[in-house]
Design a protein around this nucleic acid. Structure first.
Length: 445
RNA sequence: CGGGGUGUGGCGCAGCCUGGUAGCGCGGCUGCUUUGGGAGCAGUAGGCCGCAGGUUCAAAUCCUGUCACCCCGACCA
């Protein structure tokens, strides 16, 4: 993309309404525009990152064997009356009446609807296990939306639902989700720690939240420092293998890590003092096992091999997709702007033309731009007629992890400059070598 | 929902107390000079002062109502 042909309304000054860094940077980098309290338009740059995150979530869910579908944002009230939640959910649920005066709601979550789909089409144990998920906009009418996309009223969420024959199978689905989530967050450059949690209005016994450590987090967290060292890495996990999946979960949940909701000081104090940590975290996902809480009242039963009918065991599992934008920025920025992890960056690299209009420099930039695209990369070429400082400032603000700087001085030596946004380190190399290097960096992304 | 605050060009703000018909910085556009970390000079465009009503010869300014947004708190992917 050429910057002169793109739509990137960056702001030089901080908008007054934004209090926390991720919100400020998203506004300044031209990623979002607020339309009402807690409701945002996603401008091209923000939309691009949102789509990258969504893509990673899809890939990891499908790798775990979970099946995508799409349910609507608007739901009929009757489904929620069956589960009893129409009256229980409270003011957070946005209720709407259509022209026929039918009661509708903008879905805050989808347990009822997915259960309805399941019971309509599945009736035998032979169809289990089954995990369905979607990525769809939700609406929760928060009392006080804040922190930009971190606590919006309208937000994009991946929510998945497993249907299993018994508790053991459902707990395997729970564990499978935990592992797939760990991998998902790692691919986004995040360290997200599973912490034992409270179940809230979803209900159920087993639940973990995934917290990204950040000073601006809304939850207070208590953990063993060793937990931040755990990495899933490239290890191959067979999602069908219950014991193997459970072992990974054990590895990631044995060390103490809890939010203030479930914190037990007497357990915390058993951690060696030098590893005890109290901090703050951003919740970016949560998994639940809740047994037959919905299948029972809604009649989601299957016939077992011996011919009896039993309600299925279920769980639900969510990732706050739009919230992740904020969480990633909170975890990865500096005073000059965002620093995107390679896994989610909106463009793989930026090209800065230091002398726009100079025939040689322009030609070199064009060549580099074409070569990067030919290599399967997605570059952003700053071809504006701006001074070097302005171009650098824009690149730093929008946070592309790699910058290629092209100017007459370097070209005289036959080189361009490749700079890491994260470390600030530069190296001079030929255009061909720079393309090869970037190709290597993004080889498996 | 309780408490506090703010609405003035695209963004950040001043003006309001003490009414006299709107100003500054950034940004935009034009020209010239400049050009390896947010340039300089000159010119120029852009405002129903959130909305409605009232007081007044006259309202951004005073009064009443209303809407929106922000912050603190209690609640949450």
């Amino acid at each position: 993309m050429r910057l002169t042909r793109y739509f990137l309304p960056v702001l030089k000054e901080n908008p007054a309404e934004a209090q926390i860094v991720s919100h400020r940077l998203m506004l300044r980098a031209g990623m979002i525009k607020q339309q009402a309290a807690g409701i945002y338009s996603w401008l091209p740059l923000g939309f691009k990152v949102l789509k990258r995150i969504e893509q990673i979530v899809h890939e990891e869910q499908q790798r775990a064997g979970h099946i995508p579908l799409l349910m609507p944002t608007l739901q009929p009230a009757d489904l929620w009356r069956e589960s009893g939640r129409y009256d229980d959910y409270g003011q957070e649920m946005l209720r709407i009446r259509d022209r026929q005066d039918r009661e509708m709601l903008y879905g805050p979550t989808n347990e009822e609807m997915i259960t309805d789909i399941f019971r309509s089409h599945v009736s035998s144990y032979k169809d289990l296990p089954l995990t369905l998920y979607h990525i769809q906009w939700k609406f929760r009418d928060e009392m006080r939306p804040r922190f930009g996309v971190m606590r919006g009223r309208e937000f994009l969420m991946k929510d998945g639902y497993n249907f299993d024959i018994d508790k053991a199978a459902a707990l395997h689905a729970y564990n499978r989700h935990m592992v797939s989530y760990l991998r998902t967050y790692e691919r986004m450059g995040l360290t997200a720690i599973p912490m034992r949690a409270d179940s809230g209005p979803i209900g159920g016994d087993d639940t973990h939240e995934f917290l990204v450590l950040a000073a601006t987090g809304e939850s207070e967290v208590f953990y063993d420092a060793a937990v931040t060292e755990l990495k899933l890495g490239d290890r191959a996990v067979d999602y069908e293998n219950r014991a193997e999946v459970a072992e990974v979960c054990r590895e990631f949940t044995t060390l103490y890590a809890r939010t203030d909701e479930t914190h037990k000081p007497e357990l915390f104090d058993q951690i060696p003092a030098e590893r005890r940590r109290v901090g703050r975290g951003i919740e970016v996902g949560q998994i639940f096992y809740f047994g037959t809480k919905y299948s029972d009242p809604m009649g989601a039963n299957v016939v077992t091999p011996d011919g009896s009918r039993v309600p299925v065991h279920m769980g639900s599992h969510g990732i706050g997709v739009s919230r992740l934008l904020g969480a990633i920025i909170e975890a990865s920025h500096d005073e000059r702007g965002i620093i995107w992890p390679e896994g989610v960056t909106p463009f793989h690299a930026g090209i800065v033309n230091l002398k726009q209009g100079d025939a040689g420099t322009d030609a070199a930039c064009e060549g580099l731009y074409a070569a990067l695209k030919a290599a399967g990369l997605d570059p952003l070429y700053d071809d504006r007629d701006e001074r070097a400082g302005a171009k650098f400032a824009t690149m730093d603000l929008i946070g592309l992890p790699w910058r290629l700087t092209v100017g007459p001085r370097g070209l005289a030596k036959g080189v361009v400059e490749l700079t890491s946004r994260r470390s600030g380190e530069s190296e001079e190399l030929t255009a061909e070598a720079a393309v090869a290097r970037l190709r290597e960096i993004y080889a498996d992304r």
